[in-house]
Design a protein around this nucleic acid. Sequence first.
RNA 1: GGUGGAGUGGCCGAGAGGCGAGGCUCAGGACUGCAAAUCCUGCCACACGGGUUCAAAUCCCGUCUCCACCUCCA
Length: 461
Amino acid sequence: MNLSLYNTLTRATSEFVPLVPGKVGIYLCGATVQAEPHIGHIRSGVNFDILRRWLTHLGYEVTFIRNVTDIDDKILHKAVHEVMPWWAVANKYERAFSWAYSTLNVLPPTYEPRATGHITQMIELMQILIDNGKAYAPGNGDIYLSVRALDSYLTLSNQKLDDLQSAGDSEETFKKDPRDFALWKAAKPGDPSWPTPWGDGRPGWHLECSAMAHTYLGPEFDIHGGGLDLIFPHHENEIAQSESAGWGFAKIWMHNAWVTASGEKMSKSLGNSLLVSEIVKQVRGIELRWYLSGAHYRSMTEFSFEALEENCVNFRRIEGFLFRAKEVLGAEIGVEVSQKFADAMNDDLSVPTGLAEIADLVRIGNTALAANDLEGVSRAAAAVRGSLSILGCDPFDPIFAASNKGGDEAIDGLVKLALAQREAARARKDFASADAIRDQILELGILIEDTPTGPRWTMAR
RNA sequence: GGUGGAGUGGCCGAGAGGCGAGGCUCAGGACUGCAAAUCCUGCCACACGGGUUCAAAUCCCGUCUCCACCUCCA
């Protein structure tokens, strides 16, 4: 079975065929760095990280570009609000995003271009568009794209130009048509600006995405991703800008759905309790990632702390199996991807189906552990670990190692001293003393379990 | 008004004509000195009303409810 992906453009799932055999170019709309990331933002990062890991597993050489939009209206507003230079605001939130990505084990992109670093490329693109008559400079310093002049506009969102509600601000502008959009905005006093042949100004409608995708992936590339809400107008405009310049642009458009709260999109829900930085005070990054990975990327996932906790319990069970397997095997666990898991992933990244396979493997592995079937344990554990590694949730991944350390040797030695006393008490049937030791140790956060091969301890969560 | 999506068991969450996804919770059982962990068993759901079919959660018609996008939201 080959990889099939859903393409928003065709509204169908079809076999993935790269433009260049063996290689894949992906452009993901990353953050507009104007606020701290909430779990909806990071879901997008996680979903596309899984896509990237899967493509890499399939043997593709993946070039993954994820931009940072570090200049836009919201950033400027925020700068006024926070009484900071706009560039300090942008950098502050860019760091917040970077922290969230690494906390959730989202691999660094091949390159992470910033909008402000690509003004030259944007000017070049505008020059092309003006030269071929698709864009115009009405003389006030703005540059607009003329949407009526386009052969195909709104093909991604399947809308008709005349059905759109008009912008509202159109009468005061220099637009030829109210639906034309600004590629470039003339400088206003106090705003940052860059010089162009048409006057000083700053980037308009996400011109940077077209310019940067072109710079790093070429005139056409395989996959363009982003959140569902970017379909219109953001991605439509990217297509319009790029195709008008004569570039083939993206072949496949992939959009992740939201994390909702109380049935509504996250940005509408109040409070900042759903910031990544807040959630990871309650659960580990790997657990939050597991939760966000669990729903299909095109399905809305309804956030609740109950659901999060449930998923954590589920994950700890899987992780517990791997830790026990490693202890019994006395060796590193292999990394294999089972056919069933691969089939699931190949079917438009059907993670939920893959989860059922993981559950099966864990059950089989636990049964093998009970039967002391080391061969079976090894096989199941490797398959579980392989699946988890695709999901970016491998507990043996060094990035998570710190939070998984059972404890260092000193703790191990101390716990074993206590366990020896408990074993002695149990041997003389002094269960009251044995239980007291177990309870006291548990209060320190260490869980004692008796197994056929003797007691073992783990850090309680 | 236009465009798109959703409604599945106590909860989360797949599936998209036929042999009960899976997880969590809960209840029983096995194991255990007691636990924990683990395994086994149980809990037969698809918004509503019609229709097509041997067979519908899945297809068709109608209805209701919810959500999103429609010019700077992942």
